[in-house]
């Protein structure tokens, strides 16, 4: 419990530092490319086009999802995926790849995975802005329910930071873990209703199983904000409760692991 408080306090008091380092991280990441940070938006847009072609045009034969065009439906969910997926993979190797930059012991190491995750936020915000503009023309103009978007975004950030708090530590200790994360995270693209809708298509008993995956909550939350016209976190109050309990448990495990090993990170390199 002590460890949880320590890490939470470290993150909370270092928010300005996390932001500055995150800005820096984005700035230098695409330095060697001519198009620079534009790739952060071009590359997901390319994927969106491919997924639309394969799933919307090909497999679904351009059919709607409950009255919403497939592209619109997919876009509302997939933009979150383009934050979570790189957030988890980059965050997992954050400590391993950055620890050498740190030359003093009292640096709050827990902010390293956090700032790497936050740095993925900038491309997401750009994609989100594009999506919001698109929605105005796609017949889902700004409504009061858009106010849920910041909530679900914060929820996504908390989830990803909690997950990488665990994985970044484990990656330092056992290098293979990074490879495992990189390959297993891709599975979630298909286990979350991002490319194909799940309810009404899966047997009733399977839906709760799929909902164990917390990304289900986030993706559906984003969709609710754009076009379901409901306060998703209230109408699904018990799911909200489950989500935050899970985040808390993951964060606690991550914090305990982090505090337990942090002094010895350099010894594992």
């Amino acid at each position: 419990m002590n460890a949880v408080l320590t890490v939470a306090k470290e993150l909370w008091t270092s928010i300005p530092l996390i932001n500055r380092l995150a800005v820096y991280e984005t700035k230098i990441k695409n330095k060697s490319n001519y198009l620079g940070s534009f790739w952060e938006i071009i590359s997901p847009l390319l994927f969106i086009a491919i997924y639309w072609f394969a799933f919307g045009y090909g497999i679904r034969q351009r059919s709607d999802v409950d009255g919403i065009p497939f592209l619109t439906w997919m876009l509302a969910g997939i933009i979150l995926w383009f934050f979570i997926q790189p957030g988890v993979t980059n965050g997992s190797k954050a400590i391993f790849s950055k620890i050498k930059m740190i030359s003093k012991m009292n640096f709050p190491t827990s902010i390293i995975p956090a700032y790497v995750v936050i740095s993925r936020l900038f491309p997401h915000l750009a994609l989100l802005a594009i999506t919001i503009v698109y929605m105005q023309f796609a017949g889902h103009p700004i409504s009061i329910y858009y106010l849920q978007i910041p909530y679900f975004l914060v929820a996504a950030i908390m989830l990803v930071i909690s997950v990488v708090m665990i994985t970044s530590t484990l990656t330092v200790i056992v290098r293979d873990f990074q490879v495992f994360i990189q390959s297993s995270i891709r599975v979630f693209l298909y286990l979350t209703p991002i490319l194909w809708p799940m309810d009404n298509r899966l047997p009733d008993w399977l839906i709760p199983v799929m909902k164990i995956n917390p990304m289900y909550y986030l993706v559906e939350g984003y969709r609710a904000s754009f076009f379901y016209g409901e306060w998703y976190f209230i109408t699904n109050a018990s799911y909200t409760l489950y989500f935050w309990a899970l985040v808390f448990v993951l964060f606690s495990i991550g914090a305990v692991l982090h505090v337990r090993f942090r002094r010895h990170f350099v010894d594992f390199l």
């Binding site: 530092l17 500055r20 380092l21 820096y24 230098i28 330095k31 930059m101 740190i102 030359s103 003093k104 640096f107």
Partner: peptide
């Protein structure tokens, strides 16, 4: 991978 100037900035940020 970073330039000298960026290293200065990053190092000082970390401090």
């Amino acid at each position: 991978k970073l330039s000298g100037r960026e290293n200065i900035e990053l190092k000082c940020l970390m401090l």
